[in-house]
Write a protein that binds this DNA or RNA. Structure first.
Lengths: 198, 198
DNA sequence: ACCTGAACACCGTTCAAGT
DNA sequence: ACCTGAACACCGTTCAAGT
């Protein structure tokens, strides 16, 4: 009757993410997405290339939703908030978030988050390749932690997981402090000799 | 003709891991596994509960293959080798290895590897809950790193990835040194005040 | 321009039946 | 005891056809 386009790429991806959050990734099926949109599965092909592209879009949507802190805040506070935001995102999207570790972070959304981390690290005093290296390590650890937390790999109490996270955050803060020392970013021999034992 | 049992659980899982390594996880299909074993898909149900159980078995097989270092080596060397072994395992099984971050590490194979790390950390001087916390963080980081490396999330050259890994290893070594200090495992205020900046 | 019907090859899974 | 045939509900995907 009406010639209004019923669906578009954005609504397809939004619904797919919704289904993943509610019922898991394996419930994200072209027919399920189409049904919720009141349309047949075949019509989705007018807006997406195939299912793999749909899942790429879902991950990108998760990244797009990712709230970045105000750039005026001190760098330490910014990094701390980004870490918390990652864990929040993982909790909100427990089936989709883990995909972040499995794909090349080459999408616009990934770039945007990465840039925010770079900026904070530069403000922390890192320069050159140290910025990129620290970002990679830091992001890998945060995403790895949040994924573990949300997929049941950590079996301790919530309070213990929180304690682990605080510990991890301190460790990363130290990494940044060491990397920003004038004598180049080597976390090697400073305080005492490493502990040897039987 | 012969009443020899043609297949068993172990051979099913071995073939499934083989197919995953060769053609990816989405090629691991009951029909594909059965075909390679010279049997129909339905016959697999005599040995496994369902496909999810098959994948659990595949992950467990990867862990069972995981070579642990000689317990007589110094703890630092043992941890170093376990880290390298993890990266080797990821390279050999690039589609299966990432699953390690997504499941509760409650299987016998997971327990075996974890125990080896616990032992090394105790020899490093850690005690009590510090042992478990350090193992969790350490394992999460190594698995996260190896997963990133093998799934194309890191886009630098192989040499740069290697440099990142060396850096990560030093960082973890420092974490252990700090945690084993008598004053309790806090990586917090030792050297200088953390760098603040604009 | 956008959606649908019909069709295809392929999934996981059940169950009664064969040897 | 172990494997198979037949069947089912469900996938992703293509393509010609409708409006």
């Amino acid at each position: 009757v009406a010639r209004t386009r019923i669906i578009d790429r954005a609504s397809i991806i939004r619904v797919a993410l919704q289904i993943a959050d509610e019922s898991g990734l394996q419930s994200v099926t072209l027919q399920a997405v189409a049904k919720r949109l009141g349309v047949t599965a075949m019509s989705l092909y007018g807006h997406i290339d195939n299912k793999a592209a749909l899942l790429d879009g879902v991950v990108e949507e998760l990244l797009a939703e990712f709230a970045l802190p105000d750039a005026d805040l001190p760098w330490r506070e910014r990094l701390s908030r980004i870490g918390r935001a990652a864990r929040d995102s993982a909790r909100r999207h427990p089936d989709v978030f883990p995909l972040l570790l499995n794909r090349a972070a080459a999408t616009p959304g990934a770039h945007r988050v990465r840039e925010a981390v770079h900026a904070a690290l530069r403000d922390a005093g890192l320069t050159g390749d140290d910025v990129y290296r620290a970002e990679r390590l830091l992001t890998t650890m945060i995403v790895g932690f949040a994924t573990s937390e949300v997929s049941g790999r950590f079996t301790q109490s919530a309070a213990d997981v929180e304690a682990d996270y605080v510990y991890l955050e301190r460790l990363l803060t130290r990494m940044i402090a060491i990397a920003s020392e004038p004598d180049e970013g080597d976390p090697a021999p400073s305080a005492g000799p490493a502990v040897e034992s039987a």
